[in-house]
Computed example of a mutant assay.
Amino acid sequence: MSNSDQLTEKVILVTGAGAGIGRALAIEAGRAGASVVVNDLGASLTGEAETSAADEVVSEIEKAGGRAVANGDDVSKPEGAQAMVAQATDAFGRLDAVINNAGILRDGFFHKMTYENFDAVIKVHLYGSFNVSRAAADVFREQYSGSIINMTSTSGLIGNLAQANYSAAKLGVAALSKSMALDLQRWNVRSNCIAPFAWSRMTSSIKVDSPEQEARVAKLREMVPEKIAPLALYLASDAAEDVTGQIFAVRNNEIFLMSQPRPTRSVHAGGEGWDIESVGARAIPALRSHFLPLDVSADVFSWDPV
């Protein structure tokens, strides 16, 4: 089904849109009729400066007949987020959706992870999502409409090796998204998450140090970023006016609704309650059958994508 003109008159800000998933989202948004703010800092995954690809993405959107502007501000800085939102309203008169896609990786096993690498990833993913959404919220509240689409990851929702910083950031994004959905619902503003499976500049840096990881990366290579766009752009559209506070995952042609933490089983102690001995003798044995194993994402998504 064509996405043509599904987002006519909408203005969408896509962060980290110079490559990978963000680039695909920005181009597909343009094809669907939206005016697009293409944000890209112009830096590699490891932080070295490089020529920004935002202008190239803008050019591709314009060649296809769409409207777009390039932005080079930093999502990790509040003033950068404010500037990109201001650019959207200055250029196009409004802002209807933000897609918080910008990200970096600093993978490493926890016992080797530095404060600097932990801090850098949290700043871009979690603080970046907050900064851009917070700046956009003022516009959304005033116009009584808006959609926030946050990119989370099964690395946070489930777990992965050597990604404590990224996992913490992405699970934080899911919690932030739910809080925004709750707090902004009175102004008709929605907030949802997508955990994308796609080969991109970020996933290309995944450590391959086992046959299992090698197989996982091989599967990721087959999943193109454009597969993420239909759900993301649907969530940006008026058709999704009743969808908020949810966590989705997209893997090739599959769309998943992910669970959110809820109690699975309880035990109760009468009288004066629990003590150390009774916890070990009664509580833990009763709960143990519901313990979750130390899964990684590939253990849970163990079948081939369709």
Rank of each mutant, 00 (worst) to 15 (best):
P261F: 04
S177L: 05
Y166P: 07
D242V: 12
D5V: 09
F197I: 04
Q82C: 06
A229F: 02
A215F: 08
A283F: 06
V300W: 05
G108I: 05
R186K: 15
G146T: 09
P211N: 02
L176R: 03
T114G: 13
A164I: 10
G42L: 01
A24M: 01
T203H: 09
A64H: 03
D73I: 01
D73N: 13
W187C: 08
G93E: 10
Q213R: 15
V11G: 03
S266A: 13
E62W: 02
D5K: 13
G156V: 11
K207T: 15
L233C: 05
F301L: 14
A19V: 07
N101W: 00
E241S: 15
Q185G: 09
E277D: 15
K219C: 14
P263V: 10
D96W: 04
G30V: 00
I148P: 02
A54S: 08
A236Q: 05
A83W: 02
K170D: 05
E50Y: 11
V38F: 00
A43H: 07
A218M: 10
P196A: 13
D299A: 11
A83K: 10
P261E: 07
Q82L: 06
F109T: 11
Q163W: 06
Q213L: 13
A181N: 12
N71C: 14
G18Y: 00
I284Y: 12
H290Q: 15
A83S: 12
A135W: 01
V250N: 07
S2M: 07
A19L: 04
L184Y: 10
